[in-house]
Design a protein around this nucleic acid. Structure first.
Ligand SMILES: [Mn+2]
Ligand SMILES: [Mn+2]
Ligand SMILES: [Mn+2]
Ligand SMILES: [Mn+2]
Lengths: 214, 214
DNA sequence: TGTAGGCTTTAGGCATGCCTCAATCTGACC
DNA sequence: GGTCAGATTGAGGCATGCCTAAAGCCTACA
């Protein structure tokens, strides 16, 4: 399989991540926005990734990963999440601080170091945000989940994951003691009830970051 | 101070390393050979590094670091050696395996992570090869040392450092139990006497890799 | 069914960091 | 002092990965 550059790996990872918790394939426009680059830059890289067999693309259509692309993408996701886990468990990072560091290191560590870190951590299956860490063969368990913002009032469940996209949301939730494993009941789109019974208000961004068991 | 790219950092580090154990400044030709690139590539990068104030260079002359260049170079060396130390002490690497990994990671970790690793290791002052780890301010202790290959027969001393350039040499020395801190007496250019009294033959490359107290 | 406006692609450009090949300089030796 | 080999520099080129501006496509809605 063709080697990939750090830039290409970020494209593949972002395409993969888009469909991880939601079915629609990603469009060039959305990919450009997520990566913080111009749409025309996506067009160019898509041409290369398609030529190398990592993505399938018909002009003006959405972007989907080929089997080879999925393998490469999950390998990058695996690195990212193991690095985040390592930073939190071994080096005193909080869950809102790890993302940028992992974004760089995921392209820099060798397979050898990745395996050493994984063994050192005891083969964790989820990162600090509750995201599943793919196994070395690319497989990962997918648990049915609902976005808190989309959950019906009255729905009660366990926090499965919290999107790591917005550090401010992560800090606010940590402050409230909410994280993967927390039990929550949905009161309305901006209020949850904690196990102790007290009501807790949530910013709209927080409600769109938390995924509960369905 | 201007930011530096990974490539520029490798140039600065290599220029610095050249004078660390020997006084003559490096020439473009030698720098190109060390970096494994063409001499004309060095000419180009030297122009940029000189324009940015990191090196001093008169055409056709040798390359020397400015104070700004020395600060940047020691920062990279500090990263490199702390990473090597961390790989050996925490993750089961041997001293012949760490160099390539550190060569990449030295450009990838944040200041935040560097400080966390350093604290986690207890602020070590030397890396697995005995090379001094510069402090955050760039300072480092320089101990007088002689290359084993240049030492007079009969000279006895402690191994201060072993060059990490050739992994095969490092493996052979580890096999013989020779490393920083070992006591050795020089018999001739290719033989040393160990503390137990036995003689040990050394390859010429090994004799040019070992530095003893003078 | 026509069209406006958004999405996608194309065209042309730029910075980085390499390369090869050719020209120029330097210093050691005759 | 002249010569010449090796070192250094210059010229031109290429891959990567971004950009802006302009052109082309597509579709939802009038
Ligand atoms: Mn990344
Ligand atoms: Mn995460
Ligand atoms: Mn390096
Ligand atoms: Mn070292």
């Amino acid at each position: 399989m063709k080697p990939t550059t750090p830039a290409a790996e970020d494209y593949l990872k972002t395409i993969y991540a888009h469909t991880e918790w939601q079915p629609d394939p990603i469009t060039p426009r959305v990919l450009a926005t997520r990566l913080g680059i111009a749409p025309s830059s996506v067009t160019e890289m898509v041409k290369k990734l398609a030529a190398d067999g990592f993505i399938a693309h018909v002009p003006y259509g959405p972007l989907t990963l080929t089997p080879a692309g999925r393998i490469r993408a999950t390998a990058v996701v695996r690195r990212h999440r193991l690095i985040e886990t390592w930073l939190v468990r071994e080096l005193g990072y909080t869950w809102d601080e790890v993302h940028d560091e992992a974004e760089v290191l995921e392209h820099a560590i060798s397979d050898r170091l990745l395996e050493a870190i994984e063994a050192h951590l005891g083969h964790p299956t989820a990162d600090p945000h509750g995201d599943p860490i793919p196994a070395a063969d690319g497989s990962s368990e997918r648990v049915p989940a609902v976005l808190l913002a989309d959950a019906a009032p009255g729905h009660a469940g366990t926090v499965l994951r919290v999107s790591d996209r917005d550090p401010a949301v992560l800090r606010a939730l940590a402050e409230a003691g909410i994280g993967p494993g927390s039990r929550l009941a949905v009161v309305d789109a901006t209020t949850v009830r904690l196990p102790a019974g007290e009501l807790h208000p949530l910013a709209a961004e927080a409600a769109r970051a938390i995924w509960l068991t369905s």
